[in-house]
């Protein structure tokens, strides 16, 4: 099911594939190591702290702040028809980061490093196949 994730997916097979199912149901999940309890976002099958190989999914709030951003004009394959688009990198409140598009609730003129943003699960219905990802939205204007 991880093939559902992203506009272009280069890694359909992964031990954290269930992430996409959760996302489809509106939940943003991190991984928690069963040995040391370390939480990672994006999720990892193998703990980044101790390299233990067993984990469980745990929900995270998706609250974060903008670390940096860029508006991409020269786009790669699969994105030519949607450029320009704006990528934001957010530091998450519970640790970890997310890279995603700045969503419609955040006008580009309002972008400022340090501003609060909400990582918001998205189920795209504009395509025939199932496609999920997340966008970075204003905490007030966020709609799941």
């Amino acid at each position: 099911m991880f093939k559902w994730f992203g506009r272009v997916n280069h890694a359909p097979h992964t031990k954290v594939a269930e992430f996409a199912q959760h996302l489809r149901e509106g939940r943003l999940m991190a991984s928690r190591c069963e040995a040391c309890g370390h939480v990672s976002f994006p999720p990892r099958a193998d703990c980044e702290a101790c390299l233990h190989g067993a984990f469980t999914f745990v929900p995270v709030s998706g609250r974060g702040t903008l670390h940096t951003w860029t508006r991409i004009t020269a786009a790669p394959r699969g994105f030519e028809d949607v450029a320009p688009y704006t990528l934001g990198l957010v530091d998450l409140e519970e640790g970890g980061r997310a890279l995603a598009w700045i969503g419609a609730s955040v006008p580009e003129a309002s972008l400022a490093i340090g501003m609060p943003l909400q990582v918001t699960p998205r189920l795209h219905e504009d395509v025939e196949d199932i496609r999920v990802d997340y966008t970075l939205e204003s905490p007030k204007g966020a709609t799941a």
């Binding site: 598009w101 490093i113 990802d133």
Partner: peptide, 21 residues
Amino acid sequence: VQWESSFGSTFPGYYAMFARR
């Protein structure tokens, strides 16, 4: 490619994010 390229990240885009920061 698993968590970044799926959003259309590019090489200039990465260094651009360094520049802005």
